[in-house]
Write a protein that binds this DNA or RNA. Structure first.
Length: 1046
RNA sequence: GGGCCUAUAGCUCAGCUCGGUUAGAGCGCUUCCCUGAUAAGGAAGAGGUCGAUGGUUCAAGUCCAUCUAGGCCCA
């Protein structure tokens, strides 16, 4: 027997019960164990950074990371799910700095690195707890108890092993380069970090005159340079021109001193009216000296500086074609100036401020110095032009400080050396959506540059390289290896700063003391190393690693193309010459209801836990998986979640409640109560089952293609069909406890429940327990231990589907005709006339459904009802005609419209081709080339393309009385409901009517009324009844009655 | 400046792969109907220059080109 299922349900409360059930019965653990022998389908958890509280956007990827493993598990695959936490890195340091009120690295040094890192470790634990809570609540099944932590000793040692391998391969090198650098955090940023922090800012755009002091125009002309970073002018060292560009000497329109600019840019830079005096090439200009813009910093004594240099990176696309060079702050500048032997002058300290001894701007933050510098240029009359310039400029992705391009020593991984291998690996990776593969991600690989790996920070995996005074390097691949190098046991040393820094060793090359280099590594390397480091490979976990490399499935949001998606592939390729994943699902971002990014600043944040407490995790999961395209940005809000609850989840739930109610009333036992075989059940039953299998096929295909949106659409449509067509049409059979109907709905709900289980695991679990588990003891204990439905093509009946679609279409038209005529559906009518292609093939069964739904006694074919009853109109079916006639389609269509529709219809309905005249020639057309519409003449019908339903509105006295009886049934039912009777309660009925017609109707239809309202006795009384029970009077009918529970 | 994505009803989105003459659904709104599971259901109505322009075609929301706006990513 089913459990009772209440029609009203508090979904979030139900979910908490289900969570308790899963925990008590260890369902997740059992699902892993039960599938352990299946073929592996490997999934990698991209570790969330434990530096803040989980947001609703974190739910997004976690939904997909749950749906597909559940789906594949149901299909018999073994899908181990090991959680992970990203523990290191600047984000964690920043969170701790904020807590401690620090403003920079000095504060950390003063506080003590050991204490600071302890705080970081503690912060990680705190945030992981919050993530774990959210993970559990949303029903994301992942094994938190065996989670990998990137700060664990074994994890760090694995990372070291891979770095040592890359070092030994000669691909981990130290280099001095200009790289983006965060002056607040005091560390360089890698390119993929840079990618995350572009912000639109307004900078000054200045054109500055640099008076020539040598060459043919010395003292008589100025070089004109353009920059958006005036602060770099302080360390101006040279001006670059391009050898093959023509430059001109031009006098601006205001008649001031002539300036040198590239010829194509004269108007762009100087405006209209400039007078060109002379032209020459870049080559001519080499070594022309000029007076530098500021005399604030010293250059080395005797060095020849401040002249024109040549390089091909100069373009004539904007600016002046003359590029100011500050080698400390530009990669190209550094390269060009090096070839001319120019010095690197850097007046800016590592915290981003000008040195105190610099006049004018000493101690000023570099970005803040622009204003004073521009004012000074202006005062000295060498500022040619100054405008505000809006552009995107890289900022630190965590602390939002403007980055500075800054020359510094750094460790790099030579990823450019394995670029071809990366491209090869990408070529065999499946991206969803596939545009990422050759688009965004492919571009990124094609423009690959070396990975700036080192960070001058504290809380990270220490770079495992030891260096001696002679500059020899050695890399440690583990603590054991380090112990061998050091000649003592260091296995108990915490592989973090500052402890690991205390380990020194004799240089294997020269024997001098070697100390660890000071840097830690980019935390993105940690997460990218998870395929092996999560097992501690190769120091441990060989078997686990070999079973689980590469992964079949990873999934994150699109911002990871340069983050985790890249580092995973890069490290896999560097270490094993093989990428670590085969299929990658790349999600769009989740936006707030207003279409903007959720941010504290805008106050539009929706926290995930309250959202799930209000609407339920199933609703949020359904939204993430099925609302809109997973790979485009989507807006989440209360409205959309409420709609999901109402339209999808509650419709499903109510169908279940309905089934439970009537099955229990009838004592129906699935499997035990005999039900007719499918082939002998009514068409409606066969249709519902057929559609269930078609649904299973569709959902399966959609999920195999990672298209959850399509799966959701199919599921929602089927649930709607089941509830609002199958159940509604079959209600009477349920009231009567018809085993065929109950068995059919049982089977349909069984399939839907399994298909929905990966997406909405809570409500399906509850239904599994209430309907299936209780009645079939050999079924698994949980829907999540059950197998995916086997798709049975033999149960899919296309012909039946077509017929049902036509039936529903005809019902729709009939209802429209009813509404149009103003005759209520309650009023029976004698007949409806139907004109439709396919009518003759429609089974009696379905015709009866239509007649019942429209409340008419019989259906007749419109064509057979006689020509004078209907008007015909004919129009072209362009799709068919176009194929046949091409350019000649239009005249044929016109001829069809002009032809006599009665004659056309007569021929075509009879299965003969019809003849039409086109430009004086005769042509024949077939039935599929013409759309015939039949319109009854009386005006009581509604017609649609190709199909017509007409109602005979003649209401005979008999029909009138039948209508009144139905009216009486309705008011009595209402009284039943309002008096609180159960649907199966029997009643006694006493009635009294004043109107003679109503009296006649009730007397004539007493048996029908009794059956409809479940009256065991019906008595006509002489006056309006009163007393015990529910008494009521309906003025319109002139009916008074009393019902009493029998 | 470059690459990719998006643009369809007041709102949220289908449809575009494979072109077919009345562009759909849900929510919201108006009117009516139905109700023995339903927080439901049905009918009618209002609401669309399918971002713009040009092209291909007998025929374009759909294919092509250019442009515009927004988003993401990169310079």
């Amino acid at each position: 027997m089913y459990r009772p299922v209440p029609p009203q349900i508090d979904l979030p409360a139900m979910e908490r019960e289900v969570l308790a059930f899963w925990a008590d019965e260890k369902i997740f653990e059992r699902s892993l164990a039960a599938s352990a022998d299946g073929p592996p389908w490997v999934f990698y958890e991209g570790p969330p950074t434990a530096n803040g509280m989980p947001g609703t956007h974190h739910v997004e990827a976690r939904v997909f990371k749950d749906v597909f493993p559940r789906f594949k598990t149901m299909k018999g695959y073994s899908v181990p799910r090991k959680a992970g936490w990203d523990c290191h890195g600047l984000p964690v340091e920043l969170a701790v700095e904020k807590e401690l009120g620090f403003t920079g690295k000095g504060d950390i040094e003063a506080y003590g690195v050991a204490e600071f890192n302890a705080k970081c470790r503690e912060s990680v634990h705190r945030h992981v707890d919050a993530f774990a809570e959210m993970t559990e609540r949303m029903g994301y099944w992942i094994d938190l108890s065996t989670a990998y932590w990137t700060m664990d000793k074994s994890y760090v040692e694995s990372v070291w092993w891979s770095l040592a391998k890359i070092f030994d391969d000669g691909r981990l090198v130290q280099d001095h380069r200009v790289a983006p650098y965060c002056p607040r955090c005091g560390t360089g940023l890698s390119d993929h970090e840079l990618a995350q922090g572009y912000e639109t800012v307004v900078d000054p755009s200045v054109y500055v005159r640099l008076p020539l002091t040598s060459g043919p125009h010395a003292g008589a002309a100025d070089l004109l340079v353009w920059t958006t970073t005036p602060w770099t002018l302080v360390s101006n060292t040279a001006v670059a021109a391009r050898a093959d560009v023509t430059y001109v000497l031009a006098r601006p329109a205001d008649g001031s001193t002539p300036v040198v600019v590239a010829e194509p840019l004269v108007e762009y830079a100087l405006g209209e009216g400039a007078q060109v005096l002379e032209s020459f090439t870049g080559t001519d200009m080499e070594h022309w000296h000029y007076r530098r813009p500021f005399e604030l910093v010293a250059f080395p004594d005797g060095a020849d500086t401040h002249f024109v240099v040549l390089d091909d990176y100069v373009t004539t696309e904007d600016g002046t074609g003359l590029v100011h060079q500050a080698p400390a702050f530009g990669a190209d500048d550094l390269r060009v100036c090096r070839t001319y032997g120019l010095p690197v002058v850097n007046p800016i300290t590592s915290d981003g401020h000008f040195r105190e001894d610099v006049p004018l701007v000493g101690g000023v933050f570099f970005k803040k110095a622009d204003e004073a510098l521009v004012a000074d240029l202006q005062a000295r009359g060498i500022l040619f032009k100054h405008i505000a310039y809006e552009h995107s400029y890289p900022h630190c992705w965590r602390c939002h400080t403007a980055l500075i391009y800054y020359a510094q020593p750094s460790w790099y991984i030579r990823t450019t050396e394995v670029k071809d291998a990366l491209l090869r690996e990408n070529a065999r990776t499946n991206w969803y959506p596939d545009t990422i593969k050759d688009g965004r991600y492919g571009d990124w690989l094609n423009n690959n540059i070396d990975w700036a790996l080192s960070r001058n920070r504290y809380w990270g995996t220490p770079l495992p390289i030891w260096r001696c005074g002679e500059g020899h390097h050695v890399a440690a691949a583990s603590l054991a290896h380090l112990g061998e190098l050091a000649g003592r046991d260091v296995s108990d040393v915490d592989p973090h700063r500052p402890y690991i820094d205390e380990v020194t060793l004799p240089c294997p090359t020269c024997g001098d003391e070697a100390r660890r280099v000071p840097e830690v590594i980019d935390a993105w390397y940690d997460s990218g190393a998870m395929p092996f480091a999560q097992w501690g490979y190769p120091h441990a976990g060989h078997a686990e690693f070999e079973k689980a490399y590469p992964a079949q499935f990873i999934c994150e949001a699109i911002d990871q193309t340069r983050g985790w998606f890249y580092t995973l592939m890069a490290i896999g390729t560097l270490t094993f010459d093989r990428s670590s994943y085969e299929n990658v699902l790349c999600l769009g971002h989740i936006l707030a209801e207003d279409g903007r990014k959720m941010s504290k600043h805008l106050g539009n944040i929706l926290e995930p836990m309250p959202l799930m407490d209000q609407h339920g995790a199933d609703a949020l999961r359904w939204f993430m998986a099925c609302s809109g395209s997973p790979w485009s940005a989507r807006r989440v809000g209360h409205n959309v979640l409420q709609e999901i609850v109402r339209k999808s989840l509650l419709t499903y739930w109510n169908t279940v409640a309905f089934q439970s109610l009537y099955a229990r009333t009838a004592g129906f036992e699935p499997g035990a109560t005999p039900a007719p075989p499918l082939a002998e059940r009514p068409a409606l039953d066969r249709w519902a089952i057929s559609e269930a299998h078609r649904l299973a096929q569709g959902v399966d295909a959609a999920l195999e293609g990672f298209d959850t949106q399509k799966a959701g659409r199919l599921l929602a449509a089927y649930v709607d069909d089941l509830s609002n067509w199958y159940v509604r049409r079959s209600r009477r059979r349920f009231w009567q406890g018809d085993p065929a109907a109950l068995a059919t709905l049982h089977e349909c709900l069984y399939v839907v429940t399994l298909l929905m289980a990966p997406i909405t695991p809570f409500v399906t679990e509850r239904v599994w327990q209430d309907l299936f588990r209780t009645t079939s003891p050999d079924l698994p204990d949980s829907v999540h231990l059950a197998r995916w439905p086997v798709i049975d093509g033999s149960l899919m009946d296309d012909d039946l589907a077509t017929q049902m679609a036509l039936s529903r279409r005809l019902v729709e038209l009939g209802r429209a005709a009813r509404a149009d005529s103003g005759v209520k559906t309650r009023q029976p009518l004698s007949r409806a006339l139907v004109g439709a292609h396919g009518w003759t093939a429609l089974s009696e069964d379905l015709r009866a459904q239509i007649a019942e739904e429209l409340n008419v006694t019989r259906l007749e074919s419109l064509a057979e009802a006689g020509g004078d009853l209907v008007d015909y109109s004919a129009k072209a079916n362009f799709r068919a005609l176009g194929k046949r006639f091409g350019k000649g389609t239009q005249p044929v269509a016109a001829a069809i419209a002009a032809a006599d529709p009665v004659a056309l219809a007569a021929d075509l309905r009879a299965g003969r081709p019809a003849t039409i005249a086109v430009n004086g020639e005769e042509l024949t057309v077939d039935a599929d080339e013409v759309i015939i519409t039949e319109t009854p003449r009386e005006g009581w019908s509604v017609a649609r393309e190709g199909e017509t339903v007409a109602l005979d509105l003649t209401i005979t006295p008999e029909l009138r009385r039948a209508g009144l009886a139905r009216e009486a049934v309705r008011v009595i039912q209402e009284a039943r409901k309002s008096s609180g009777l159960e649907v199966a309660d029997r009643i006694t009925l006493e009635w009294h009517a004043v109107d003679a017609e109503a009296v006649a109707a009730l007397r004539e239809h007493a048996d029908l009324v009794a059956a409809e309202v479940l009256a065991t006795s019906v008595a006509e009384v002489s006056e309006a009844p009163s007393g015990d029970g529910a008494a009521a009077t309906d003025a319109e009918l002139g009916l008074s009655f009393r019902i009493t529970k029998a």
